[in-house]
Simulated scan of single mutants.
Amino acid sequence: MQDYKWLYEYCLNRFGSAAALEARLPVPKTPAALRDISADRYLSMLALRVFRAGLKHSLVDAKWPAFEEVFFGFDPEKVVLMGAEHLERLMQDERIIRHLGKLKSVPRNAQMILDVAREQGSFGAFIADWPVDDIVGLWQYLAKHGNQLGGLSAPRFLRMIGKDTFIPTDDMVAALNAQKIIDKVPTSQRDRALVQAAFNQWHAESGRPLCQLSTMLAFTVNH
């Protein structure tokens, strides 16, 4: 694999200046900022990620105020009490997206947030304290203990809330293939560990967060 110096110089040549490159790179939230996010906002973003999967984002976003209303502002203590009959009634509400599987995921993910809070003090602290040099472990935790958070949903949720992570998009996977790190979408623990190790090396060389390295790597794929 190429080192960070090559990655930076490639992106610099593509955009023409350091300022132009930096303007295109995401900035993760600090651990303190992640701790400050309330449980209801974490649940809202988890639900938003689940509903966006496979659907046009603008359609979901336009309906989100109604979702906030029917799910009690995504207060986990209230949402977790929503039973099957309540969810069936929501299937008749034309203001929201009526997908029973996705609707069922909301109280299940509320339960995960409450379980984590009991063990860690708060869900925000849990997210903030998870080490980014094992961010794939956090993906696995969310997929295992949450609902409908497999595939790219966990890393995309983390990017939405500002937790530092890379995301194996099509461009990033193509770039990793070109670097001979992996040859397909990293779904196995082995392939994810290989990608994590590569990003850890680039991070050690540059001090840059994973989200910036991920974006820069995607820039190396020609369109």
Rank of each mutant, 00 (worst) to 15 (best):
W202I: 06
V79K: 03
W130V: 01
A84K: 00
L34R: 12
W64S: 03
N147W: 08
V60M: 10
K180Y: 13
Y141K: 08
Q92N: 09
G54C: 10
Q120Y: 14
Q120T: 03
T165D: 14
L217R: 00
V132F: 04
Q2G: 02
L59Y: 14
Y4S: 04
G124M: 15
I127T: 04
D115P: 06
N200D: 13
L87C: 00
A117W: 06
I127V: 15
L158Q: 07
R49K: 10
K104V: 02
E88Q: 05
Q196C: 11
S38A: 15
V106I: 10
E85T: 05
I181R: 13
L34P: 15
Y8P: 03
A20Y: 06
R192K: 09
W130S: 01
R159N: 13
K78H: 08
F123M: 03
N222Y: 00
D134P: 02
A204T: 09
A66H: 07
R108C: 01
I167K: 09
N109E: 03
F123V: 03
D191F: 06
D36V: 11
A110W: 04
H99L: 02
Q111P: 02
M172L: 15
R95A: 11
E85C: 01
Q148K: 06
V136I: 03
A154E: 10
V70L: 03
I97G: 01
R156P: 01
A154D: 11
L158Y: 12
A53K: 01
M112S: 07
N200C: 12
R190D: 08
Q196V: 08
L213A: 04
Y42T: 02
D133G: 07
R89D: 05
D75F: 11
D164E: 15
S153F: 09
D183R: 00
V132G: 05
A218C: 05
A66V: 01
G150N: 12
M112T: 05
R41N: 07
Q212F: 12
T187N: 02
D133Y: 11
Y8E: 08
M216F: 01
Q189W: 04
E69R: 03
M45F: 08
P155I: 08
G150W: 13
A154M: 11
K29L: 15
R95E: 07
G101S: 05
G151H: 13
E88N: 05
A193T: 08
T220C: 03
T220K: 00
Q140Y: 07
A23G: 15
T169N: 12
E85A: 09
M82I: 05
L59F: 15
M82N: 06
L194N: 06
F71G: 00
V132Y: 04
N147H: 14
M82D: 06
L152F: 07
R95K: 11
L158N: 09
K180F: 14
E85V: 03
D134N: 13
D3H: 12
L103P: 00
Q2T: 04
G101I: 01
Q148Y: 13
A84E: 07
G137W: 09
H57K: 13
K102E: 00
I96F: 11
A20I: 02
F15Q: 03
G124P: 12
A204S: 13
F74P: 08
A143R: 09
A117C: 10
G83V: 02
P209F: 11
K163Y: 15
K56M: 10
H223I: 00
N200E: 11
H203T: 08
W6E: 01
R35L: 15
D129R: 12
M112Q: 09
